[in-house]
Amino acid sequence: MRQLPLPVRLRDFALFETFEAGPNGAVVALLAAPAQAAPAAWVWGPPASGKSHLLQAACAAHAGAAYLPAAELWPGGPTTLAGWEDRSLVCLDDVDRLLGQRDWEVALFGLFNALWERGGCLVVSATTAPGAAGFVLPDLASRLAWGGVFRLEPLADDDRVAALRKRARHRGLELPEDVARYLLRRLPRDMRALCDWLDRLDTASLAAGRRLTMPFVREVIAAGRPERPVAPS
């Protein structure tokens, strides 16, 4: 096991370099230069479509940025949205969790206005387009969509292979293309699950001192499968 320096489990650093844009090049380019998206942009897509990765990457690339996952803000109540107005970019992940509740929406409105006054940008992610997000305040819905509404399109298989290899390379692993394609055929296909498997392969390869060859990967997957919960028949 590798030693973690901090009590938080660090995921692969979410950077633009490890994000496979596939058909989503335009929104990736926009978030890489968020001044163009100011005052706000809305990024949406189903779970595991890369929203968090993209927002974290945008935050990692800009020194004055903040990345705020709604789930972590939630317990602290709407006042957690105060004190971010001096940032040049605020990325609010899963904003739809906060919508439909007046006090949260009012606080979010306050954050938007404060950022807007200062020329900052608010990028939010959600699982739906703004029209279906259940806003209480239509004025807020309209402002959050001001800089454009972008749907993250699912990656094609070739893009997934490229994404996996890119991620592996970033952590110093060589993942041959045929092995990546094999993973795609044998494992759950969403990128989050695939990346979790990449984690396990990384650990296994380190422990065994072996490279990610086809026979080794087959072995790890075969060994890994029974550990997963089995659905009741």
Binding site: P5, L6, V8, L10, R11, F13, A14, L15, Q56, A57, C59, A60, A61, H62, A63, G64, A65, A66, Y67, L68, D86, R87
Partner: peptide, 14 residues
């Protein structure tokens, strides 16, 4: 070097 870049920018840099 120990935190992820987004965590560093969000919590430590300011």
């Amino acid at each position: 070097s120990e935190l992820s870049p987004d965590q560093f920018n969000t919590y430590v840099a300011p």
